[in-house]
Design a binder for these strands. Sequence first.
DNA 1: GTGAAAGCGCTAACAG
DNA 2: CTGTTAGCGCTTTCAC
Lengths: 345, 345
Amino acid sequence: MVTLKEIARRSGVSTATASYVLNNGPKAVLPETRERVLKVMNELGYRPNAAARGLKKKRTHTLGVVFPHVWAEPLDNEYYSQVWKGIVKAASARKQVLMIFAGMTWAEIVENVPSFLDGRCDGFLFLAPPANSPLIQDILSRESRVVLVGSQGMDLIVSAVDSDNIAGGKLAADYLISLGHKKIGMIMGEVTSTSALTRRNGFKNAIISANLDLDESLLWTFEYDETAQIPMVRRIVGACRERGMTALFCGHDSIAELILREAPSFGLRIPEDLSVVGFDDLSTTAHTNPPLTTIRQSMVEIGAAAVQILLDLIDEVTTEPTEKLFDVYLIERESTAAPSKAHQP
Amino acid sequence: MVTLKEIARRSGVSTATASYVLNNGPKAVLPETRERVLKVMNELGYRPNAAARGLKKKRTHTLGVVFPHVWAEPLDNEYYSQVWKGIVKAASARKQVLMIFAGMTWAEIVENVPSFLDGRCDGFLFLAPPANSPLIQDILSRESRVVLVGSQGMDLIVSAVDSDNIAGGKLAADYLISLGHKKIGMIMGEVTSTSALTRRNGFKNAIISANLDLDESLLWTFEYDETAQIPMVRRIVGACRERGMTALFCGHDSIAELILREAPSFGLRIPEDLSVVGFDDLSTTAHTNPPLTTIRQSMVEIGAAAVQILLDLIDEVTTEPTEKLFDVYLIERESTAAPSKAHQP
DNA sequence: GTGAAAGCGCTAACAG
DNA sequence: CTGTTAGCGCTTTCAC
């Protein structure tokens, strides 16, 4: 390994001078000296040692990104990919390196993350942590340079970036109501996810504001277990037949895709018998049959904003926790329509 | 920040002793001393500083993973996700942290990666680097602890893990031949990708071995540009109509999905008019219409094996570069059938 | 079994 | 403008 000392020796200067040229300061260096040193550095392919620098400066230019699980899980795959894309983009634009912490389960994360508070990262991004996790509390007590992504509405004093899920839930419900639907159901994602909860709250609010009947039996939670999915679809079909449900809001596009895929085998036509609205606007939803009406989130922007906020925290540009919510948009496709005559009063 | 020195002071021992208890060695420590020190560490929530340790031991327990681009790109999304899943799994099982290097373009990577050869990682995993990239050459000249993933068959002396793509291309072709097809086309992925090239080589070999006509005009390269895709499909449809092509092997499932989706609008029935075989076995391909016959790769295992090989290199368990190829499997679904009578001689 | 001290590679205050 | 040197937090050799 070639060291600064070696560079200095070969260029006939002191390590201090060599360091000054490396860092462009804090002291000035004569142009010719500078050139000489740079030349030697180039020739030897010198790379300043990151550990030594980190030790000295207490700054690693590394951001830790904590994933709740490996994001290859089908349900959230594209959401994480897109947010991640924004993170990478913003981080590389600002010359930051990303360090990933991911385990199979949240328990594994909880066990390991505290051991990373050892100076190898300047701050942390937590992607969609479960609501009210004690880990976050614990981390925050020792490290304030933390930004939560996809977790608005927790009671913690911490920076966070997310879509405006309340508005999203409301947007979906209001749209279905405007089409004339009266009996509207919803399937939410994980109960441990704050965004799933807030989407449902927005949805409920809209139903209530419209003076419609909020039928709790039409509110389901998605079953991640594959063997439970067909029975779940069956229950939803049952609700259409027996309770007159004519529209369904799904907390994730992937849930909506499942419904679209399975509905025909139950003789349920979409949108004639059931209007379906998703959430996310995944790239696949424009090609479902029928194309899915959904709520678009700005996933890439969310990731980029999170990096921005974290760096401001690290650089002490801001000291107060910031919360940023992104607007969501209705993307109207063909999985929604006015309720058919058969269901009209 | 609480340091070892502070721990030592508070426990009434030297930093050396405190270090011995931290590392369980290299010297023995009296159990009671040990307990006392551990207690203080716990109370203060002590975390040994990573930079200081790295500086001293020249080992960071960090693995660098280089992505050719953000893997949110639709074509390769799930492939990278799955490989990544295997990497995370294997790395966390062996207590390694992962550092990600990703840019938007390969040029950005080339520009930045060398600057990470600064001791912050113990070794590197390169995911599907372009064939014959000078970057890899450059890196290898300064850092031998490198494993290539998804890039068999380059001429470099470097460890690599991949699917047996030659066998995969052959498997697809042999299967179509066994169904009775004589005019078989292929669309390959990026020309810069070694796996795309080797799949095509396997395909060609099989065609030639079967004494069939290898029609070069039936060999296409996928167009990533979205506006070019419909014209590309049109050309393929044309080949069916004008040159009697009855089967098509796609180098990626995502390409096959495009064909399946667009074919109906050209009046092309699958598999009646054209049999289609994909490659990857993405989770979505069981639900395409019709379900896609494809070649399954063991993506998770590939990722895990790469970590294993890299760690052996780092720990000097092995010093020779290792190449590991994983078997691929034919998954027979409904997008393939014997050629219809109309096309038979 | 424990401690003093050197030193990993770098930065920066201080001296010249 | 350049050099000397202390020290970041830790590990480990060497002495006791």
